[in-house]
């Protein structure tokens, strides 16, 4: 029994299912469509690792679906992805029987991947500078607002002058 269990564990492979859900699906029903995909994975013994919630994306090129001889053109779709662990044979069945037959799925991709986060996490210098400026700005304003109840106009002007002076100092320091 233990050998069989070990084999099952080692046979399991990490997969990522990327999918486009039709843009015609109402935003409220979107969660239900994702739940269908999740339930299909769970039903076949898959274990979830991470998930990217579907977001409306503009496609790089229009995609067409043939519905009874009538072509429908789609230029946007809800793109989401799920990373999960499953046995290869079951993953094939999942793709053929659950994902491919789901008419609300515009297109999908099932790939082998790793358990670790695979997306590039780039931190540009520009982004970090923008964040710093934003946080210091809000903190300074809060201080002025707290004193605002009993403060006269003159005091407000003085506070503004102080703030401007501080900013100039900071700029000079940079």
């Amino acid at each position: 029994m233990t050998e069989e269990n070990n084999n099952e564990v080692t046979d399991a492979q990490v997969y990522e299912l990327g999918y486009h859900i039709l843009p015609t699906v109402v935003a409220d029903d979107l969660e239900g469509e994702v739940a269908k995909v999740r339930n299909a994975i769970e039903a076949r013994g898959g274990s979830f690792i991470t998930e990217g919630t579907p977001e409306m994306t503009t496609l790089a090129f229009p995609m067409f679906i043939n519905n009874g001889g009538k072509k429908t053109k789609y230029e946007t779709a809800y793109f989401g992805w799920i990373k999960f662990e499953m046995e290869p044979a079951k993953a094939v069945a999942l793709e053929r029987e659950d994902i491919k037959t789901n008419i609300q799925v515009l297109r999908y991709i099932l790939i082998k991947t790793t358990r670790e986060e695979t997306r590039a996490q780039l931190q540009t210098e520009q982004n970090t500078i923008l964040r710093e400026v934003k946080t210091t700005g809000t903190i300074e304003r809060k201080v002025v607002e707290e004193e605002g109840g009993e403060v006269s106009e003159e005091q407000v002007e003085e506070a503004i002058e102080e703030l401007v002076g501080e900013e100039k100092k900071e700029e000079a320091a940079v």
Partner: peptide, 11 residues
């Protein structure tokens, strides 16, 4: 250079 270990199709 950027310390990117995996190249993801979503990027």
């Amino acid at each position: 250079q950027n310390g990117i270990k995996y190249i993801d199709y979503k990027d």
